[in-house]
Simulated assay, not measured.
Amino acid sequence: MFLENVVFDATDPQALGRFWEAALGTERLTDELAGFETRLAVAEGPVLDLCFQRVPEPPAGPQRLHLDLRGAEEQEAVVERLLASGAGRADIGQGQVPWVVLADPDGNAFCVMEQRAAYDGTGPIAALPLDVADPDRERDFWSWLSGWVPIEGSGLPSLQHASRRGPLLELCPETEPKGPAKNRIHLDLRLEPGDDADAVARGIADRGGRELDLGWGDLPWRHFADPSGNEFCVLPSRD
């Protein structure tokens, strides 16, 4: 099993997907009415697909997962480029910080980070910060789930692909518990050939997660929540 997708809910997947494709320099996979997909391949590291799925209403509620982009020495230039591409400046109560908070065309906040040694070799996405109730517990949960390994140096309990390349998955202390609204951005895992889907579901439950029934009918993937309630999907293997 491995981490495959970062999924955005969007009323206009094409517009939002093209913004992020230009922002990250990714490779387009699909451009269809139901959604838009683009691929980030980190040299000698993971491959992550950014998927933009159509939803009928604009996403609402707190944003518990976001993207931190690597700015480093070019932070100011990256910010100016993103503003010219359709991003806007955002105030989420960050105060005086060395990173810059922006919002994409759908209002999803993201950050352009200053130079940090922990982000060397990550590629254009420095980190995927996820709000959780217990960062140490969630680090163990997501490490088992994704196969990513714990790393030090970011200031937060964090994981990274075993290659030590690509973005960090940072487990951030939540400011309030997860509410009933579905997260507007979530992660997808993909089973590998030979993985037992039911055994994976039991493993998730044994570690504090749970399977969800969203009432969406018979689908080839299954919906789950981590111990903090953050939704994620487990997709079938491609064999």
Rank of each mutant, 00 (worst) to 15 (best):
V6R: 15
V6E: 05
V7Y: 03
D9G: 12
A10C: 13
P13L: 12
A15V: 09
A15H: 05
G17C: 00
R18L: 14
R18P: 06
E21W: 01
A22L: 12
G25E: 13
G25K: 04
T26W: 03
R28K: 12
D31N: 04
A34V: 08
G35I: 10
G35Y: 12
R39A: 12
A41M: 11
A41S: 14
A43T: 10
E44S: 09
G45S: 10
G45L: 09
P46A: 04
P46V: 07
F52P: 00
R54H: 11
G61R: 13
G61P: 07
Q63D: 01
R64I: 00
H66V: 05
L67A: 05
L67R: 14
D68S: 12
L69G: 04
G71L: 08
Q75L: 10
Q75V: 07
E76I: 06
A77G: 10
A77D: 15
A77T: 13
V78E: 12
V79C: 10
G86P: 00
G88F: 06
A90N: 12
D91P: 06
Q94L: 02
W99Y: 13
V100R: 01
A103N: 10
P105V: 10
G107Q: 06
F110D: 03
C111Q: 02
C111G: 02
V112C: 03
Q115P: 11
Q115A: 15
Q115C: 11
A117G: 15
Y119M: 08
Y119G: 14
G121Q: 06
P124H: 15
P124I: 01
A126E: 00
A126D: 01
A127K: 14
A127N: 10
L128M: 14
P129Q: 07
P135R: 01
P135Y: 03
R137F: 09
W142S: 04
S143W: 05
S143Q: 15
L145S: 00
S146V: 11
P150T: 13
I151M: 09
I151V: 14
G153P: 02
S154T: 08
S154N: 15
G155N: 12
S158P: 00
R164A: 06
R165E: 01
R165Q: 11
G166V: 04
G166K: 10
G166A: 04
L168A: 09
L168Q: 10
L169W: 03
L171A: 11
C172Q: 13
P173C: 13
E174L: 06
E174T: 10
E176I: 02
P177G: 14
K178H: 15
K178T: 15
P180A: 13
D188H: 03
P193D: 13
D198E: 14
D198W: 02
A199T: 11
A199L: 06
V200Y: 01
A201N: 11
R202A: 14
E211W: 03
D213R: 12
G215C: 02
W216F: 11
G217R: 07
D218P: 05
A225W: 00
A225C: 15
S228V: 11
S228R: 03
E231I: 08
E231F: 02
F232D: 06
V234F: 01
L235C: 08
L235K: 15
P236F: 01
